[in-house]
Amino acid sequence: MSEPIRFHFDVDGDNFSSAGEASVQVKRMLRQIGISPDVIRKVSVAMYEGEINMVIHANGGDADVIVEPNKITIVLKDVGPGIADINLAMQEGYSTAPENVRSLGFGAGMGLPNMKRYTDDMKIESEVGVGTTVTMTVLF
């Protein structure tokens, strides 16, 4: 596996019930190419939370997963409202998600902290009114 393997997904922002479809597919694909279960868990959970965030806050976006011999990189890019205060958004329990999202099992302010927790590196680039790109790396 010398050349990186790339997966691309359009994350549909119209429908909360489809949020996470890309992450489920990534999990299956990583299993097929023989990535270890621990690494798959980290990548798929981090991507799943990110996907949910993109659907809740940004009306969807693009998700790319790049598999290299010693690391997997996940890039989630949206053209949503942006994050005004990234440090605040990173605090466990802080959420700007609407109440109806909470009744669906999300919106408790755990998404970004979970993404950080499951990855070895996470970078958030965001501009209010322009969009957000989250880049996460899992090493193995």
């Binding site: 999990k27 798929s44 939370e49 099992g105 999300f106 408790a108 755990m110």
Partner: peptide, 29 residues
């Protein structure tokens, strides 16, 4: 579900009163 994603380690069974597709996706993850 975010708490399941945060705190579950090797639990094989999820009991929940929430009933939507995200419950299954969370269990898959």
């Amino acid at each position: 579900m975010s708490d399941v994603l945060a705190f579950v380690k090797d639990q094989a069974v999820l009991l929940t009163g929430l009933c939507n597709l995200q419950v299954v996706r969370t269990a898959v993850m």
